[in-house]
């Protein structure tokens, strides 16, 4: 029983990380109508920034702030240089460009830092014991922080002027442009928020396993993308639910030795099954195609 509760808490915390990355995918998809395949590589850039910044400053908090800012700048740059010229082009072209950007970031980091794994000197907080339950502190921190961030983001989107503009742009871009919303600014802000969330997720991921390589971002990226699709891409609550669901499933299948090696296959099979039953994900809106 204790084991199950412990696994469940671990799953929730991993799910929180996935949810934060998935939010980046889903917001960009909802507002810019594109899949940002390079989102996973922003996580990787965040990780390397932490690696360098902790080495330089020694202070993890300062390093995290630097990583968040740098990733935000990277996200905005990526949007301005690679995606903005293609606005209005076919979705396939945008998708391939995003794949190209992802490939570029991975190769550049491999040139700069080498292909091998680097160890990031993250703080170790140990664990606390509640009765017979032993929980790692980073698990709790991740869990609490991801809940706080998700609530804050929901409040921001629902009540602030910018957030409401985001909803308007995702509903109907042309109409919101007519209402005086600066669509370009809104898209830039979306990329900024998504990239910053990715940097935060990267921090928590490194607290869990403090080693990093150029392909560090691709697996969490693909998993979070899966989570966003399961939840219904474009839907913010969907990304949260999908992320947490996927995290819990992953930790539970990993805890059973017989099926542990097949964890990835199981997760992706669940994705395919969910998409076959509900082609737009759990909370995705069904859009009627118009001619």
């Amino acid at each position: 029983m204790i084991d199950i509760i412990n696994t469940f808490i671990n799953g929730l915390s991993l799910g929180g990380i996935y949810a934060m990355i998935a939010l980046g995918y889903t917001m960009v998809y909802g507002i810019a109508k594109m899949l940002n395949f390079a989102h996973g590589d922003i996580i990787m850039v965040g990780g390397y920034t932490l690696f360098v910044a902790i080495g330089l400053f020694g202070n993890p908090i300062l390093a995290i702030v630097v990583a968040i800012i740098l990733c935000g700048v990277l996200g905005v740059l990526m949007e301005k240089l690679a995606y903005k010229p293609l606005r209005g082009a076919s979705p396939l072209a945008v998708l391939i460009t995003a794949i190209g950007v992802s490939y570029l970031l991975q190769s550049l980091s491999q040139i700069i830092f080498g292909a091998g794994t680097k160890y990031v000197n993250m703080p170790n907080w140990g664990s606390i014991t509640l009765g017979s339950l032993r929980i790692q502190v980073y698990t709790l921190v991740t869990l609490i922080a991801s809940v706080v961030i998700m609530v804050a983001l929901s409040v921001f989107i629902k009540y602030s002027k910018t957030g409401r503009a985001m909803i308007a742009v995702s509903e109907d871009r042309a109409a919101s442009e007519l209402m005086g919303i600066n669509v370009n600014t809104i898209i830039t802000i979306t990329f900024l928020i998504g990239a910053m969330l990715a940097a935060v997720a990267s921090t928590f991921y490194l607290l869990k396993a403090p080693s990093i390589s150029p392909t560090f971002g691709s697996m969490p990226g693909i998993k979070a993308f899966t989570a966003a699709v399961i939840g219904g891409i474009g839907s913010i609550p969907g990304a949260m639910i999908g992320g947490i669901l996927l995290g819990v499933i992953e930790v539970f299948t990993n805890s059973i030795p017989a099926i542990a090696p097949y964890t990835d296959a199981i997760e992706f099979t669940i994705l395919i099954i969910i998409l076959l039953v509900r082609p737009t994900g759990l909370l995705g809106k069904k859009r009627r195609e118009k001619v």
Binding site: Y29, L35, P91, L92, L95, I222, F225, T226, V229, I233, D264, A265, F268, T269, L271, I272, L275, P279, T280
Partner: peptide, 16 residues
């Protein structure tokens, strides 16, 4: 599935 969803399904298939 529409384009983007199909892309993730094929990607998932490769990983499986």
């Amino acid at each position: 599935l529409r384009g983007d969803y199909l892309a993730i399904v094929t990607l998932a298939f490769g990983e499986i």
